[in-house]
């Protein structure tokens, strides 16, 4: 479990405009612009796959309302709990 990153970031390449602000803002420098172009002709941001702390800097620096979703590792105690957090409920309801 200790090798698992604390956070995870999901970037929607359809929504990303490739401004690069998230890449610049990421404290652990785990975001990059994809070498390939998206269908809009920009290099969308992508997660390198490791190092995310779930700090949310990329989310707040991103000008698109829904391009970035940030997740954080569920603490084991809470993961085992039978009662889901309100946030989880809200998220599941939108799935």
């Amino acid at each position: 479990m200790s090798s698992q990153p604390r956070g995870n970031v999901i970037i929607d390449p359809e929504e990303c405009k490739g401004c690069g602000l998230c890449v610049e803002s990421c404290p652990p420098e785990c975001l990059e612009l994809a070498p390939q172009l998206s269908k809009y002709g920009v290099h969308p941001a992508q997660y390198s796959g490791e190092g995310c702390t779930g700090c949310g800097a990329c989310f707040y620096c991103c000008p698109e309302p829904g391009a970035i979703v940030v997740e954080r590792l569920t603490p084991p105690a809470k993961a085992a709990s039978a009662i889901p957090l309100p946030q989880e409920v809200a998220h599941e309801a939108t799935l």
Binding site: N8, D12, G56, F59, E64, G66, E71, A79, Q87, T94
Partner: peptide
């Protein structure tokens, strides 16, 4: 094993129907 902590606010519309295309941006 992860929970969402930041995502698009429900105060935004799901789709922006300003134009026929690119309603997610």
């Amino acid at each position: 094993g992860y929970q969402v902590i930041h995502e698009k606010s429900p105060a935004f519309y799901d789709n922006y129907d300003r134009k026929a295309e690119m309603q997610h941006q």
